[in-house]
């Protein structure tokens, strides 16, 4: 995986580069918006990590420009927390993910892997969490090398959980993702579906578990 790292702070860039390399990425580092634009235009990267504040320009402007010119590769944004501005909100609503500074390198790596799982090409991808694997192309689920049969809805829910592992899915998000706009929906449909999926995963001996946060949502993680 070729990764473009755009970060002007030299020490942070050095540490990030080392951490990302250790995680298996081939990292190229640039420190200015101009160099970043040139590198992105070359089109030889699979993913990019972009600091928003660059000495010669704003990272978000650069990204918007390249997006308008047809850039499709996933971009993870590094940003300082600014709770009172709507900037982070804007990022959340956009397709790309963001990480707040300061961050743990593990978190950056996890987010990058999640971004790479997104089906932005017609290629099948394998998402693996613990001993649970899902191929998003042929929708096969493997638990510790054994196949697990799931219904269409259960598969949809599992994919949703695995793409956003470690983060909370609210009931509304699940309803919108799995059920049609006009579909009649029992008020406890999501609860019932989650309960079934959880039972099947546990029955097959999967290590990741689905946590219920009452009134908030559900979360899948693989914390032993």
């Amino acid at each position: 995986m070729r990764l473009l790292l755009v970060e002007d702070e030299r020490e942070l860039a050095g540490l990030l580069k080392a951490g990302l390399k250790a995680a298996g990425f081939a990292v190229d580092h640039v420190a200015t918006a101009a160099d970043a634009e040139a590198a992105l235009t070359s089109g030889s990267y699979d993913i990019a990590v972009l600091d928003l504040r660059l000495p010669d320009g704003d990272g978000l402007d650069l990204l918007r420009r390249r997006r308008a010119a047809g850039l499709t590769l996933p971009v993870l944004i590094l940003t300082a927390r600014d709770s009172l501005s709507d900037r982070v909100k804007g990022l959340e609503q956009g397709g790309d993910d963001y990480v707040l500074k300061p961050f743990h390198i593990d978190e950056v790596v996890a987010r990058l892997r999640a971004l790479l799982r997104r089906p932005n090409q017609a290629l099948g991808v394998n998402i693996v969490i613990g001993n649970l694997g899902l191929n998003t192309m042929d929708l096969r689920v493997m638990v510790a090398d054994g196949p697990l049969a799931l219904s269409r809805r259960e598969l949809g829910l599992l994919e949703l959980f695995m793409r956003r592992a470690g983060r909370v899915l609210t009931k509304e998000v699940i309803e919108q993702a799995l059920y049609g706009f006009n579909e009649e929906l029992e008020s406890n449909a999501v609860e019932v579906l989650v309960h079934r999926l959880r039972r099947k995963l546990a029955g097959a001996g999967a290590t990741p578990s689905i946590h219920t946060l009452r009134g908030i949502g559900y979360l899948m993680d693989d914390v032993p």
């Binding site: 951490g19 927390r81 600014d82 300061p102 961050f103």
Partner: peptide, 21 residues
Amino acid sequence: TTDAAHELRTPVAVLTARIDT
């Protein structure tokens, strides 16, 4: 405040990343 935010967070980010190593 934006300048201060950046200037203050960068060393903390470096520190956090260094501790991770």
